[in-house]
């Protein structure tokens, strides 16, 4: 079964002779309960792919092709309809949790605002749902945490809070853009484990954007490798990492420190 199907997705910036392709015929699919990792260097278009699914393409760009989610076509979808999906069915977390949470609003307020907007439930119901989500992502003292502010948490806990905030509306798709890049390596493992569990327990389709093959090797089910806006290779995790077909994938993996570990 397929939850999200990206088919021939292209993105251009600018018009006429100055136009440049940022994405070129990108195609892959995400099934529920799986983590699809998109790997690539800076400028490979991996982040743009994630943003296109969220309908958050930058000004001055134009996308063509198809993104089908749950029998709905997302390319060309109106802003109103997209607002109904974003945060509710499609959720996203970012690299820097401190920058993605509002510093002046309490955690509870930030987690319940969009929940109440999408579901129309009461304030107290929303708070208890938020507390459940925080408990699920293992933030210590979930009820107390609702009253606190972002600066009172460490980076790892903030990322857990960001994940809780993303899943509180019970989305079907979670897009995680470099979710552990800003975290310490000892904290990273915990967040990775959390993502894996959520994906399995909630039957989430996860799109994991990262430049870190260590992260992909740990939790991805499928890997899509991008270069200059083009998908150069896609396949199951183990095969892609241990026996990459494309020279570019091979060069990426060989450039990693301690790559002899796997041989």
């Amino acid at each position: 079964m397929t939850l999200l199907e990206i088919e021939g997705l292209s993105m251009t910036a600018g018009t006429g002779s100055a136009a440049r392709r940022l994405l070129d015929e990108v195609s892959f699919a995400i099934s529920p309960g799986t983590i699809t990792g998109v790997a690539g260097a800076s400028g490979s278009g991996k982040t743009m792919t994630g943003l296109s699914v969220m309908g958050l393409v930058p000004d001055g760009t134009h996308i063509t092709g198809s993104i089908r989610f749950d029998d709905r076509e997302l390319v060309g979808l109106g802003n109103r309809e997209y607002n109904g999906l974003r945060g509710a069915k499609l959720a996203m977390i970012f690299q820097d949790p401190a920058a993605s949470l509002h510093p002046m609003l309490s955690i509870g307020r930030q987690m319940t605002d969009h929940l109440r907007f999408h579901t129309g439930i009461s304030r107290s119901q929303a708070r208890s749902r938020a507390a459940e989500a925080l408990e699920r992502t293992r933030v210590p003292d979930p009820v107390g945490a609702l009253k606190k502010y972002p600066h009172q948490f460490s980076g790892g806990q903030l990322q857990r809070i960001a994940v809780a905030s993303a899943i509180v509306c019970e989305p079907r798709i979670l897009i995680a853009d470099e979710p552990t890049t800003a975290l310490d390596v000892t904290v990273q493992a915990g967040v990775l484990r959390l993502l894996r569990e959520l994906c399995d327990d909630l039957d989430l389709g996860v799109l994991l954007v990262t430049h870190d093959f260590g992260v992909l090797s740990s939790i991805a089910d499928d890997i899509v490798v991008m270069q200059n806006g083009v998908v150069v290779e896609r396949g199951p995790r183990e095969a892609t990492i241990t026996a990459p077909q494309h020279a570019y994938t091979r060069s990426l993996i060989e450039s990693l420190p301690g790559s002899e570990v796997l041989r």
Binding site: G214, S217, S218, I241
Partner: peptide, 13 residues
């Protein structure tokens, strides 16, 4: 805690 790039799907730790 360093993830191994071995494609085995093991989360460090």
């Amino acid at each position: 805690a360093i993830p191994r790039v071995d494609g085995r799907g093991v989360i460090p730790g």
